[in-house]
Simulated scan of single mutants.
Amino acid sequence: MLRAPAETKYADELDYLESIDTGPKPFTWRLSPRMVRIFVLGSERSDGLDREIAQKWFGDRSFVERSIVTLASDRGLLLIGDPGTGKSWLAELLAAAICRNSTLVVQGTAGTTEDHIKYSWNVSMVIAKGQSRQSMIPSPIMTAMEQGMIGRFEELTRSTSDVQDALISILSEKYVSIPELDDDNIVFAQPGFSIIATANSRDRGVNDLSSALKRRFNFVRIPVVTNKKSEAEIVRFRTAELLRRHQIELELPPTLLDILLQSFADLRAASDAAAGDDDRLESALSTAEQIGVLEDAILHSHFFGDRTLRAQTLAGSLVGSLARRSPEDLAILNKYWHGVVEPRGREGGDWGDFLDGGRQAISTLS
Rank of each mutant, 00 (worst) to 15 (best):
Q164R: 01
Q164T: 07
Q164I: 07
Q164A: 07
D165R: 02
A166E: 02
A166M: 03
A166K: 00
L167C: 08
I168E: 00
S169F: 06
S169N: 05
S169E: 04
S169L: 05
S172V: 14
E173A: 12
K174A: 11
Y175G: 04
V176E: 06
P179M: 06
E180Q: 07
E180F: 03
D182L: 13
D183S: 12
D184Q: 06
N185Y: 01
I186M: 10
V187I: 15
V187T: 12
V187G: 07
F188R: 05
F188M: 06
F188Q: 11
F188T: 14
A189S: 10
A189V: 11
Q190E: 11
Q190I: 05
P191W: 00
P191D: 04
P191Y: 02
F193V: 14
S194Y: 02
S194L: 13
S194R: 09
I195W: 03
I195E: 11
I196R: 00
I196Q: 06
I196A: 05
A197N: 01
T198K: 03
T198N: 09
A199H: 03
N200G: 12
S201A: 15
S201L: 14
R202K: 14
R202V: 15
R204P: 00
R204N: 06
G205N: 07
G205E: 07
N207C: 14
D208S: 12
D208A: 13
L209N: 13
S210D: 11
S211F: 09
K214G: 11
K214D: 15
R216S: 11
R216E: 08
R216G: 08
R216I: 12
R216M: 10
N218R: 09
F219V: 15
V220S: 05
V220C: 09
R221Y: 08
I222L: 11
I222A: 02
P223E: 04
V224K: 04
V224Q: 04
V225P: 02
V225Y: 02
V225D: 01
N227Q: 11
N227P: 00
N227T: 12
K228W: 03
K229N: 03
